[in-house]
């Protein structure tokens, strides 16, 4: 077992990502506004990205671009995966926003409850 301080500094980023994920999950589950749900989903996504990047970090390393005299590089693989995931996330967000615009035009609202009421009428 390591000493408490290094344990804390070794896991603080992971716990930060967990708290962000919890916040995003709470927004998605409790808020009825569809745009706010999309913001919540984006927060969940960024929490996962942050966890991934923190796994690839190496103490005393540099960015993975080959440099004379650099001994250690951070792991490039999570960077590649998350780089593409970020661009895919903007594409899926735009699709979600387009769907929300169509829902607004069809139901006159972007609140989940109101849409459901109009659906049951």
């Amino acid at each position: 077992m390591t000493d408490p301080l290094s344990f804390l500094s070794g896991h603080a980023v992971q716990w930060g990502a967990v708290v962000l994920l919890m916040t995003g999950l709470y927004i998605v589950m409790t808020r009825g506004n569809l745009i706010k749900k999309v913001v919540g989903l984006n927060i969940v996504q960024t929490a996962v990205f942050l966890l991934y990047i923190s796994i690839g970090y190496v103490e005393d390393g540099t960015a993975p671009i080959v440099l004379e005299g650099a001994a250690r590089y951070s792991n490039p693989l999570p960077h590649v995966l998350i780089l593409t995931a970020i661009v895919v996330s903007v594409a899926t967000t735009s699709l979600a926003l387009a769907l929300i615009v169509r829902i607004r035009e069809a139901y006159g609202s972007i609140e989940e409850d109101e849409i459901r009421e109009r659906e049951s009428d």
């Binding site: 960015a63 671009i65 780089l83 593409t84 970020i86 661009v87 903007v90």
Partner: peptide
């Protein structure tokens, strides 16, 4: 190829 960047960032 030489620094940070690439197709995804350039497109954005």
């Amino acid at each position: 190829d030489y620094g940070p960047g690439g197709g995804f960032q350039a497109g954005v």
